[in-house]
Amino acid sequence: MKVKSLLLGILTGSIVAGAGTLLSAPASGKDLRKRIQENKAEILELLNEIKGKALDVKNEALSASLTSKESVKAFTTEVKNLMENWKQDIQPHKEEIQLRISEIEGAIQELEGVVSKSSTGEKENKK
């Protein structure tokens, strides 16, 4: 969209500048008409060149867009595959990890029980 606006601005500026130069230069009517005819060919050539470049930019933008879409799709597919493989890799270890967590929780509860008993015993000894 920005490229289109830029090219349109360049084209408009070129036409206005050319017309302003032709009309402001002191010359006879015959010379002016001759210069207009000469510059008309140049302006048409310039317009065709700008049109060709605009088409090239459009084609490159479309190509880049398609390439980026394909890259994003490939990346997301690869990430999904990696996540699935990771899930499958950790699945056998998941149960073992849960068992170890349960053992740790049990040990913490036992430790809390021992600490609370020793705290209670210390308070009775002080009395």
Rank of each mutant, 00 (worst) to 15 (best):
L99G: 01
K51T: 01
I36G: 02
M83K: 10
I101Y: 10
V72F: 10
G29P: 04
N125D: 05
S65Y: 12
R100E: 07
A25Y: 15
T12E: 05
E103K: 11
M83F: 11
L62F: 15
L47H: 05
V72H: 06
S119A: 11
I36M: 13
L11E: 02
K117M: 13
V114L: 14
A17W: 15
E105Y: 13
E103H: 09
L82N: 10
L47Y: 06
K94L: 02
V72I: 13
T12N: 04
P92V: 04
K51N: 02
S5H: 04
I101T: 04
E105N: 05
E42S: 01
K2Y: 15
I36W: 12
S65V: 06
E42Q: 07
L82I: 14
A74N: 13
E103Y: 13
R35E: 07
L32F: 08
E42A: 00
Q98N: 06
E105I: 10
G121K: 13
K40M: 03
I36D: 07
S65M: 08
K127G: 01
M83I: 10
W86G: 00
L55E: 08
S119N: 11
K127Q: 07
K126A: 01
K87Q: 10
S102V: 05
W86C: 02
K51Q: 03
K87F: 14
E45L: 00
V79S: 04
